[in-house]
Design a protein around this nucleic acid. Structure first.
Lengths: 224, 224
DNA sequence: CGCATGGTTCGATCCTTATCGAAGCATTCC
DNA sequence: GGAATGCTTCGATAAGGATCGAACCATGCG
């Protein structure tokens, strides 16, 4: 018998598939609600709730209650780092679960991150929005500039904050390792992309596939 | 449902207490046999064997067969890094499993590491044995010098290698983070310490407590 | 104040798996 | 060739925990 920190306790928390999926989903940095995480993990709401309380007890998550919504997020960068380390080993020793190929590549280019766009396209977009001063960095937050507000309104994109959810928020991109845009604005932009049929969501995947014309339109509007 | 590397599979391997103890024991970098790991984990040999085959299947361990001994070791530095990351989180979010206090302090000073001495005293001893040229470093191994052989024989300590177990082996100290002496010589030295009643083992603990006179004797013989 | 929605708790079920004793295989020692 | 040692496999047992439906709280909406 050995002593020391209880690594089995922590590892077994990550060792359940449902919980692992939840943690994976939270790796993007965006806090999610219990229902969203239940969906992500493919379990019922009571099951998810049970898992979430275990993760809370284990100190792996933080909880922010906002009205009747409860947002779960990773407790710390240290926890995120641990999950990355485990992911690294899993990748190294795997057989991979996903069939590698076009879908994986498509995911890196553009995918849905909860309700907004992620991937190379999304990261590039955020960069350009800063360049054009439509968005402004403000002490680690993102703010919509007045020119940005009119810009998006002109595009028919609502920029109103709703129910405590911020308009703009940075979200760390899993594949690119840099930030992309979340928040209601991020969600509204994704809505527009889908509504305008610039792109469509792959079935049973997070991948977002642009049509040739759609890509041109997207680049004209957001990457110009 | 999400995709990606199967992190739950890896984490659940570490998530069993017996396996976690084994992995912890292997973190020193020394490969150990199934029996040693069974002892370390506090389970029976069949149970340990079952765990070891699971860890092998998971790609976390390597196996080196030498005659009828089978030495298990960590598969890679990446695996070790993962365990460190998990340990870090466990330490951060813990409550520690060990009650802190005198016993913990005693453990850091001197404790049993399977069949040899570990802790500050053991690390200091190995340093001195090198200084006195009783032991020699030889391409990452430890060798007994001729003067060392006669020295230990004079003390009534057998230095014969038995059944492929090396006389001298370095073992990374958990608390000091430096090497102490394992192998048959390390075991024989611990035997002598106990036989001479210089120290006694704490009940249900790995701590080794020296008597005042015993400490003097130990210092005279090994730390002079 | 009712009603809808988001979450948690409870209870029962079911399945996985950790565990050990006994037996079996392999290797080395005498 | 036995005998001993190191280790694995097999079989049976038991315990933990993941799961879901139903019922139960809490918040927000009309």
């Amino acid at each position: 018998m050995r002593e020391g920190p209880d690594i089995a306790r922590i590892a077994s928390l990550v060792g359940d598939p449902a919980r692992a999926n939840m943690l994976n989903a939270l790796m993007g940095g965006t806090a999610l609600t219990a229902s969203e995480l239940a969906l992500e993990a493919g379990v019922s709401l009571p099951t998810a709730s049970s898992h979430l309380s275990k993760l809370m007890d284990g100190g792996l998550l933080t909880l922010a209650s906002q009205g009747r919504h409860r947002y779960y997020g990773l407790a710390s960068a240290q926890v995120a780092g641990m999950i990355e380390a485990i992911t690294g080993v899993a990748e190294a020793v795997g057989p991979k679960r996903v069939r590698p190929g076009p879908r994986d590549a498509a995911m890196r280019v553009a995918r849905v991150c909860y309700d907004h766009l992620a991937g190379e396209q999304a990261v590039a977009m955020l960069d350009r929005l800063f360049d054009r001063k439509l968005l402004l960095r403000e002490d680690n937050q993102i703010r919509l500039s007045s020119s940005g507000a009119s810009h998006f309104t002109a595009l028919g994109i609502e920029t109103r904050a709703k129910a405590r959810r911020p308009v703009c928020r940075a979200c760390l991109d899993w594949s690119v390792r840099r930030s992309h845009l979340a928040g209601t604005l991020g969600a509204a932009i994704l809505d527009k992309i889908i509504a305008e049929k610039w792109a469509r969501r792959e079935k049973d995947s997070r991948a977002v596939v642009f049509s040739p014309k759609g890509r041109q339109a997207f680049e004209r509007v957001f990457l110009a």
